[in-house]
């Protein structure tokens, strides 16, 4: 649910990075933060445990430029991926405008990917939303590792409807901005439907 501020001439949208534990959601945001012009970004907040695991969320505000004289501002959030933080994941999806599913390409994580994607669908329904009805993008992360599932197999299991998809290595930044841009584009294109 985007927030359009006619007084400040701003569009504010929320993008949530979802995926199983240790798939690289926080690393995506850290890369975006590190490579974005300081004028275009706010402070990145990470509510994490002492061992650097996401406890509640990471948050990164970004400004992308202007469209129709309105500043396009995006609030990027990650969810905690660990299974037992489901209550927190649900809360973070409130008001989501677009989602990135970060899949871990390692063979042994396929089941965790499927479980997390199903969890995303379930939690969206609790907010009256559906995965097929909000813009979302699939990112196949960790493609640099040796034991990865072939893309065709990942696509078959995780992206049968063919949403935009990107291979990535979030630690080096490969695919990170492509993923973000595609998601932001989807969110802005969605504004056409709601008009405002």
């Amino acid at each position: 649910m985007s927030f359009i501020n006619y007084a400040a001439r701003e569009i504010n949208c929320k993008i949530v990075y979802y995926g199983p534990g240790l798939c690289g959601k926080t690393t995506n945001l850290q890369y975006v933060y590190a490579r974005t012009n300081p004028d275009l970004k706010g402070k990145m907040i990470s509510l994490a445990t002492e061992t650097e695991r996401t406890l509640f969320f990471d948050f990164l505000p970004l400004a992308l430029g202007e469209i129709r004289g309105f500043k396009a501002r995006f609030h990027l959030y990650t969810v905690p991926g660990q299974v037992f933080y489901d209550a927190s994941r649900k809360l973070i999806l409130k008001g989501v405008d677009g989602a990135v599913f970060v899949a871990d390409s390692q063979e042994e994580r396929m089941e965790a990917n499927i479980e997390s994607l199903e969890n995303l669908q379930t939690n969206l329904i609790e907010h009256g939303l559906e995965l097929g009805k909000i813009p979302w993008v699939m990112q196949y992360n960790k493609r640099d590792l040796p034991n990865v599932t072939p893309i065709e197999e990942m696509r078959r299991q995780l992206n049968p409807t063919g949403v935009p998809e990107f291979e990535a290595c979030a630690t080096t930044g490969e695919g990170v901005f492509e993923t973000l841009k595609a998601t932001a584009k989807g969110v802005l294109s969605d504004l056409r439907k709601v008009g405002a």
Partner: peptide, 11 residues
């Protein structure tokens, strides 16, 4: 329930 888009004007 999904929430509708929130649009605010100067007033």
């Amino acid at each position: 329930m999904s929430e509708s888009q929130f649009v605010m004007h100067e007033g």
